Simulated scan of single mutants.
Amino acid sequence: MSVKQAELMMLFVTFSWSSSYLLMKIALTGVDPFTLMCLRFTIAFVCVLPLLLKTIKICSKRTVAKGLFLGFMVYASLIGTIVGLKHTTASTAAFLGTTAVVLVPIIEGVWQRKMPPMLTILSIALAFVGLVLFTVKDGLSLDIGALYCLWGAFGYAVYIVVVGRIANEKDMFPATLMQFGAIAIFSGLSAYIFETPHLPQTGMQWGAILGLAVICSAFCFVMQSIVQRYLSPSRTGLIFSMEPVFAAILAYFFLNEVMDGQGLIGALLIMIANVLKNIVYRIRYVNAQRKRKVWNRKRMV
């Protein structure tokens, strides 16, 4: 696969991710949040099960425990996003979801007890102003849906940091496949306790759930893991920054969602924050590559 083909495939993956907000909004008209999560990830787990069986030789009890832990983290963050979608627009949820990338350095800084670079601090400040514009409406009232989406973004940021710590472990791939099953289990238990589970009633609702499971979960996960081998982290992050833009366009055409002036300014600030964060990633990546070349040169001498 060439770099150009990888970029186009990653752009398609990003577009598919962005459609999840529209599909969740449609699915929520027929089923409750926990039931939706259970159906989505049960189907997704069945789709990736053949891949999991191929890696069964390197699995252990620790792999299963890791898959359950990762699944619970995604489950906890998705609660915020899905509940938020019941109270706010798909485009708002998408833009707030991308703040997870900006929240990562805050969590890493607290974890490592060190100050992030100034460019990262600037991106955090811009994202914070954008968040305020999204969550505070009409002067003082709070958008409860936006607050739930922010919960989801924070939870996913924690997940990114944790995965970054264990990404190089040899059983990481089967553990990440197992997390689909873990999410389905946690969601199924929650649906049984807090909801009255029932299946979708229309073809459109079933189509939305199948799209979420097969395309937005199983396909995107596998394809992203393949394509990222051919792209630098900074380029991948820059392509991913298009996700809320795609989501807003889809929401406009299919849900008739239009942002007001305050929302547009907030969205713009969050987009700028994401671009600045990707510039930081690019600088770090280039510096790491330069150090590696220098080290290899010295080793050859």
Rank of each mutant, 00 (worst) to 15 (best):
M204Q: 13
H198Y: 06
L28C: 01
F95S: 05
M300Y: 09
R229S: 12
F221L: 15
I166W: 08
Q205R: 03
T81K: 00
T63E: 00
V110K: 10
T89H: 07
K25E: 07
R165T: 04
I82L: 12
G80T: 12
P244Y: 06
W206K: 07
A191Y: 13
F254Y: 06
V129P: 01
V129N: 03
G207H: 03
T42N: 04
F134L: 06
K293W: 10
K137Y: 05
M115F: 13
K57R: 10
V245S: 07
G152D: 05
H87L: 15
F34M: 06
V102G: 02
Q289R: 14
G80N: 11
K298R: 08
Q112H: 11
A90W: 02
V3A: 14
Y230P: 00
V46F: 12
I160C: 14
K291I: 07
I226W: 14
R299I: 02
Y159R: 03
Q5H: 13
L39D: 09
L119K: 15
I279R: 00
M242W: 03
Y156H: 10
Q228F: 03
L22Y: 04
I270M: 06
S190G: 09
L140R: 00
T202A: 05
I209M: 10
T29I: 07
A213L: 07
K137G: 05
L268W: 03
Y159T: 06
M24L: 03
A6C: 11
A248N: 00
A100E: 03
D260Q: 10
G80A: 09
C47Q: 01
T135Y: 01
L131M: 14
C220H: 05
G139L: 08
M172H: 03
C59T: 10
L212G: 03
S187L: 10
T55H: 14
K298M: 11
V3R: 13
Q5N: 13
V222K: 13
W17Y: 09
I279E: 11
D143H: 05
W206V: 12
G263W: 04
E243A: 14
I160R: 03
A167V: 10
